[in-house]
Amino acid sequence: MSGPGQRFPGFDVLSQSGNWDPVTARVVLARVGPAGDLRFFTPAEGQAAAALLDRLLGQADGPGVPLVGLVDARLSEGRTDGWRYDDMPEDGRAWRDSLSFLDADALAGVGLGFAACPAADQEALIQAIRDLGPADWHGMAAGHIWSLWTRYACTAFYSHPSAWNEIGFPGPAYPRGYKNAGVDRREPFEVRDARPSDDPVPEGA
């Protein structure tokens, strides 16, 4: 299995931050700074959320993006998407409720709170919810809670320069822009994929 950074050896988005406009730099660099205290989640919720988010993004071996901090900041500042499915409460409530349901599932199945479960059990609990599809999970459509979790998790993870390093994406591009667009063309600061035929897991695997 490919490890972080291996496909784009030496590629480091932050090494280019001197080329970013100051407004963008402020916003992006704030994400790589030290995570502050949680403001939205209670400490117990924060532990469950951290475990859930790390599993959803497969963070066991890094790169250690502070997912719970990023999600907590969004929820505490009300930076939600606004819309919600009619069988769901607003996002903040939905996060709290779903974390407590996840704990309940963990206690029933494993005898521990979700955060305290071994990683393999956490993964099994998550997969069970995923497998429900549109079916009911504690009074809400499992697919709707799945959508909420993955939207917040993916937005947090792929907003982080460490994530951009592993996918070969250079991040902010103003005011420099790109001069070499086109198939198999690169800018001097982009790094060629060292393993271009490393097709991801085939469909159905």
Binding site: M1, R55, G58, I126, T150, C154, Y158, S159, A163, V201
Partner: peptide, 25 residues
């Protein structure tokens, strides 16, 4: 990347598999 991750996640991928797909961006 964020919008692309939603595309990949919508296939049902999560965890390590999602990350592997994304590395291929």
């Amino acid at each position: 990347p964020i919008t692309w991750a939603e595309h990949v996640a919508a296939q049902g991928h999560w965890g390590r598999v999602l990350r592997d797909y994304m590395r291929d961006y």
